[in-house]
Nucleic acid binder design. Sequence first.
RNA 1: GUGCCCAUAGUUCAAUGGCGGAACGCCUGACUGUGGAUCAGGAGGUUGUGGGUUCAACCCCCACUGGGCACC
Length: 371
Amino acid sequence: MPELFSFNLIHSDEHARAGAFQTAHGLLQTPVFAPVGTQATVKAVTPAQLIELGATLVLSNTYHLYLRPGAELVAEMGGLHQFMQWQGPMLTDSGGFQVFSLAASRKVDAEGVTFKSHIDGSQHRFTPEKAIAIEELLGADIIMAFDECSDPDDRSYVEKSIERTHVWAERCLKAKTRPDQALFGIVQGGIYPDLREKSARFITGLDFPGYAIGGLSVGETKTQMHEILDMVDPLLPVNKPRYLMGVGSPEDLINGIRRGVDIFDCVLPTRLARHASAFTSQGRINMMNAGFAHDTEPIEKMCGCYTCTTFTRAYLRHLIVAKEMLASTLISIHNLYFLVHLVQQARQAIMEDRFQPFADEFLAHYNTKRK
RNA sequence: GUGCCCAUAGUUCAAUGGCGGAACGCCUGACUGUGGAUCAGGAGGUUGUGGGUUCAACCCCCACUGGGCACC
């Protein structure tokens, strides 16, 4: 068994990488897409279904689990793996993003963030030390540093924000005590290349077993995202995994892998599924559309997922219109399978030195909505 | 059989003589380190039918059709 947290870069095809990251719950083949299970569940999907559709890494969330049911309770139940019955590699976000995107109100200072719960309005405070303590109680294999994800467009704020994030990163490292969890540092800097470079140099100067790129896919354009990824890529060490947080769409995964990203997570496939939108190789389709009422085809003909090998579009549309919860489950299974397999195919293409044509062909057929 | 009431968008209802609206539903779209939340846009009307009064009728009058209630 490889040393814990070792990253074996198995093969590269230009910037695209195929690797393997050793966690306490198994060897993680990269690139990899992680379904998001915010509240210790990937919404509408059971762990058995996650395994069947090919998921290998699941993300869960510090902010939510701290508020409900409480990190101590999860620890009492034997930790997050045992609690939610996911025995594979798991990752927890630090709560940095959620404090900024969900909390009713918040006050940031040099030491941490005071915020109000979106559930009951109660007041709480996260510091780097507190976030790490919670993540240690939860017990995921990869834990994230407590960072500030600010408005990517506000330069003067981003300047102050990355300074805070950098100090907090050091404090997270110092606060960490468990040897079986890999703490990843997070590069911030909004849409500003010079700030991204500054952040990347600082964060990679600290000894993390992996690095994340945060603060993207929060409203910037695709072009801006690609620019940042292109310039951050050479600043990150080749022998450690890179995690692009919160991304993404099928085209974002391909474009991220092309720029050296190893790990992705995103709520998109499951959220879209709950709103009846399904991925296909041609682009997204809305399964609620009246045109599918009599459609005897599966969502996608060549798809090997449980949903596509079993059910028609007409049936799925019926479930959606009737507001049956099975609709969410079946489309979630399809969307997750689609992304997990897209990334697995990308990995295979990298191994065989044909990633660029693979990526070009996929992007040529996939109808992208957002530019 | 007699009397009274009612009939407006797919549905439930507004509009009382002066440009026919709302809610829900329906049809589209959005959603990126998750609020199964939500948001945005669109279509939809010979105002039950036929007459009449009026410059002008969903609105007033008459008949008819259909529905409801009460009494025989």
